[in-house]
Design a protein around this nucleic acid. Sequence first.
DNA 1: CGATAAGCGAGACGGTACGTCAAGTCTTGTA
DNA 2: TACAAGACTTGACGTACCGTCTCGCTTATCG
Lengths: 202, 202, 202, 202
Amino acid sequence: MARPQSAPDPSRRSAQSRTAILTAALELVADVGFGKLTIEKIAARAGVGKQTIYRWWPSKGAVVFDAFLAANENATGSLALPDTGDLGEDLRTLLRATALELADPAFNRTGRALAAEVLTDPELLREYRERLLDPLLEVTRDRLRAAREAGQLRADADLDLAVELLYGPLYYRWLHGLGPLDDRYADQVTQACLRALGSTGG
Amino acid sequence: MARPQSAPDPSRRSAQSRTAILTAALELVADVGFGKLTIEKIAARAGVGKQTIYRWWPSKGAVVFDAFLAANENATGSLALPDTGDLGEDLRTLLRATALELADPAFNRTGRALAAEVLTDPELLREYRERLLDPLLEVTRDRLRAAREAGQLRADADLDLAVELLYGPLYYRWLHGLGPLDDRYADQVTQACLRALGSTGG
Amino acid sequence: MARPQSAPDPSRRSAQSRTAILTAALELVADVGFGKLTIEKIAARAGVGKQTIYRWWPSKGAVVFDAFLAANENATGSLALPDTGDLGEDLRTLLRATALELADPAFNRTGRALAAEVLTDPELLREYRERLLDPLLEVTRDRLRAAREAGQLRADADLDLAVELLYGPLYYRWLHGLGPLDDRYADQVTQACLRALGSTGG
Amino acid sequence: MARPQSAPDPSRRSAQSRTAILTAALELVADVGFGKLTIEKIAARAGVGKQTIYRWWPSKGAVVFDAFLAANENATGSLALPDTGDLGEDLRTLLRATALELADPAFNRTGRALAAEVLTDPELLREYRERLLDPLLEVTRDRLRAAREAGQLRADADLDLAVELLYGPLYYRWLHGLGPLDDRYADQVTQACLRALGSTGG
DNA sequence: CGATAAGCGAGACGGTACGTCAAGTCTTGTA
DNA sequence: TACAAGACTTGACGTACCGTCTCGCTTATCG
C-alpha cells in the first residue's frame, strides 16, 4: 500500500519542522489562497528545506489538508452532539452551529480550497472522510438513532439518508452561494427534516 | 472593468479556431484531467497560437468551463421539467435523471474538476450560476410553484429552500462518495421532500 | 549529429540576450571562478531567463567557453606570425608573447578553468581545436615550413613535432607551475628548438 | 591553519572504511567520470556514512586524488630510471613508457579528470607535485645530470628546461589529442631533445 | 572490568542549484 | 488585424547533493 522503497524513518522526524510547516501552510492559505500557494513559499516561511516537505507529504494539497486537520482535530476531539431529549432543539442547535461556521468569511477561503482539493483527489477524499466527515456523520446518526428508538422518528427512517437531508442543503447553499446561512435558514432545514423523518410529521 | 486598451474585435474572431480550442480543451480534460491540463497543450492540440487563447479567455478554467457549457448548453436549451399533474411522479423523474447523470463515471472526472474550479473562482461561480444553475433552479421552482398553487404543497412552502432540499442531498452524496446514486436513492429523497413540503404530508 | 527534435530557430535568436549572457559569464568566471559559477547566476546577472541559456547552450562549460572564444576570436582574427626572414628572431618573438600571456595573472584563473573544461569534455576539446588551437598551430607550421624551404631547418623536420616542441614545454611549465614564464625562459626554449630542428644546429 | 576544535584522532581511524572509500572512489571515477561523481555515491558504494568521508578529507577532489595516489604510489615507489650508460637508449625507454601510459584508454578518463582537478585547485597541485611530479622530475634530472657529467650533454645544459623539453611535448599532444602517442613519436621527441641538449648535437 | 568517549553507519535537516515545464508577454511573418 | 509560431522573462516544480547535525551501535582505551 505504501511504497516500499526507502521510506523515511518517522522516528527521526523533526517535530519542530513539522509544526513550522503546518503553521506556515495555514497562514499562507489564508494569505494568498490555495491556488497561489507554492511548496517553495511554505518552505521559505517555515524556514525549512523543500526536501523536508517532499519527504513527508506527497503533494501541496496533502500538506494543507494535514495542516487543516491538525488544527481542527483536537477541537473536534470533543465531537459530541447534545442530547437534551428534544430532538428538534438538538438538531436546531447542530444546524445553527454548522451554518455559522460555513458563513464565517475566515472559513470560506480555506474551506472552499479544501473542498476543491478533496473533491478532486480521491486519496484526500478518503482521508477526509476517515478523519473528519465519517466521525461527524456517525455521531449525527447516533443522535438520530436514539431519537428513532425513542419513537420520535419513523421506525423505518433511513439514517444515511437522514444525515444527507440535514447537511446536504446547507452544503449546497454554501458552495453555490445561493443565500444566507443564518439561524433562520438552519431552523427551516431542521423543520423540513423533522417533517420528512418524524413519526407524526413533526 | 475590462482593460480599455486594444480590446480584440469579436467580429474578426475566427470561429474555426474557437471551435478547435473548445474541442481540444474537452478532449484534454478527459485525457489528462483538469490539473494537468495546460494552455500550451490546448493550443498545440488545437493547432492554434497561444495568443489566440489568451486573447479570448482570461484563464484555463474559463476555457474549460466555456467548452463544457458550449457542449451542454444546447442540450439544456430544451430545459423543461415535465408536468404530468402528479408532483410526486414528476419529482421522481427529475431526481432519477439527476442521480443518473451524477452516477455516470464519464461525468465524474469532468464534473468534479468543474465543481472544484467553480467553487474556488468567484467569477466562474457567477458565470456558472447565470448560465446553468439558476435556470435549472428556476424551472424547478416553477414546477413547485405550480404544485403549491394546486394545493399540493403547503401554502407557506419556501421554494428556495425546497430546491436545496431536493438537490442538496444528491450533491452531498455525490461529492463525498457516500453511497450509490441510483433510482432507489432518488425515490427516497423525493419522498422525504414531499413529506417535508407536502400539504398533507405526501 | 544535432538532435533533430524541435531545435530552436536561430534566426529568431535575441542578439541582445546572447551578448548579455556571454558578458555575464566572463565577468562571473573572473569574479568567483569556474567551479562556483552557476547557470542561475549567469542568468540573473544577464537579466535573462535560465531557459534562454538552456535553449542555446548544452552546459555551463559551453557557455563560458563560447564567451571566451567570442572575446578572443576577433583578436586572433589577425592571427599572423611575423616573418622577418630570421627564424630565430621570429620564434623568439612568438614564444615571448606566448609566455607573457600565460604569465598574466588575469589570464591564469580563466585559462586554467577553460583548460580543465576542454581537457575533460571531448566536445569542447573538438571545438577548441577547431576554433583556436588548430589555426594557431597551422600558422606556426606555415612559418616553420617557409623556414624549412629556405633551408633554415632540416629537410626532414616534422612540423607536427616541431610545434609541440615549441609550445609543449611552456604549457607544461604553466600548468604545473614549475617556474617563471619570462623572456629568458622563452629564449631558452627557442634556442633548444632551433638546435633540435635547425639544419646546422642553430 | 587546521581548526583546533575536535580534530579527529587518526589512531582510531578505521582502515577498512578508508580502503573501502578509496576503492569506491576509483571505481566511480572510472564508471561515471569525475564530474558526475558525488560524495554520497562514494559513501553509498563504500557502505560508509558520509560523515566518515567528511571527517578525513576536505573535498571530493582530495578523496579521488588520494585514491589515485594510493593506487599508484607503491608502483612508483620503485621509481628509478635505468642507467645503461647510453643516454639515448635510456631516454627512449623512458619516453616510450610514458607515451604508452598516456595512450592507455583506461588511463585517459581518470588521468584527464585528475589533471583538470590538479590544474584548478592550487592545494591539490601542491600535493600532486610533492607526491608524484617532483619526484619524477627529480629522478629524470638525476639521470640527465649523470649524463652531463659524463660529457654526453652540453656543460651548460639547464636540467629544469631539459625535463620540460622531454615531457612537455608528450603532455601537450596528450591533452589536446594532437596525434598518436606511440613509440615512433617517443623516439622523435627523444632525438629532438638529444639534438637540443647534446654536447655534439646527438 | 565496567564507564565512557571516540569512530562509525545511517539518514534527517536547511540549503543551493539543477534542468524542466508552463505561464503570460512580445515579436515576426503570413493571409 | 487576427492568426500560427515560437522566443522571451519569470517562477515553481521535484530531484540531487551539499555539508552539518543528531541518532544508536560498536569498539577500545582508561578510571
